[in-house]
């Protein structure tokens, strides 16, 4: 465990908790893409199937449980409790265009052709594009609530910090994983224009609004 990975996990946890609290406190999921949250729930489910079979550490197991429960709770709040506030008119990104290619690619490019490994690879590929429905929703509505932009900033930072973690592990342990690395680069690149808007607008106290 190195500082980048720890900060990355922390940033990821903060993002997940910020989103859950935003929906719970404001009793509204306006501006949130339920489709992205479904994809994240699928990502955690397919990635953490080894939750009980492959014990790594208390930290690892407890974080996995927190991620899985929070992601399902978020999906439940969006499509269950607060579905009246769900923006289904704008949350229209076709997630099958993300699920099918990720599944096909997972069969073609993986480290080991075993069910757990293919599901892990699928979750890595899917996670790299899972934010697209959310970014699509923000671009369609042309703006995002400040709390939502903090959520996106924390979520984007997590994988950026993981890229630094992999750099660190490569030079210190000779460890590298091309599948996770290339997917992580794609995932982080997707946030670039958001990062620019966040730093140039939100940090100056303005609302995040996309140029019309």
């Amino acid at each position: 465990m190195n500082v980048f990975r720890f900060l990355g996990d922390l940033s990821h946890l903060v993002a997940i908790v910020i989103l859950l609290l935003k929906i719970w406190k404001t009793r509204s999921c306006s501006g949130i893409s339920g489709r992205s949250q479904i994809l994240f729930a699928i990502v955690f489910t397919t990635r953490y199937l080894d939750l009980f079979s492959n014990f790594i550490s208390v930290y690892n197991t407890s974080m996995k449980i927190v991620y899985i429960t929070c992601s399902y709770a978020t999906v439940y709040l969006i499509y269950g409790k607060f579905k009246a506030t769900y923006d289904f008119n704008h949350d229209t990104f076709r997630i099958e265009f993300l699920l099918v290619p990720s599944a096909i690619l997972a069969f073609l490019v993986n480290h080991d052709f075993s069910p757990l490994e293919i599901l892990w690879t699928f979750s890595i590929y899917l996670e790299s594009v899972a934010i697209l429905p959310q970014l699509f929703l923000v671009s369609k509505t042309g703006e995002a609530e400040t709390i939502t932009s903090h959520y996106l900033f924390a979520l984007g930072s997590y994988r950026l910090l993981y890229l630094l973690n992999w750099l660190w592990r490569y030079f210190s342990q000779g460890f590298y994983d091309l599948i996770a690395l290339l997917s992580g680069i794609l995932q982080t690149v997707l946030y670039c224009d958001f990062f620019y808007l966040y730093i140039s607008k939100v940090l100056k106290g303005k609302k995040l609004s996309l140029p019309a």
């Binding site: 996995k64 080991d112 460890f175």
Partner: peptide
């Protein structure tokens, strides 16, 4: 290189 299929990261 460490066995890549033992994923110790989240």
């Amino acid at each position: 290189v460490i066995a890549r299929t033992r994923h110790d990261e989240l």
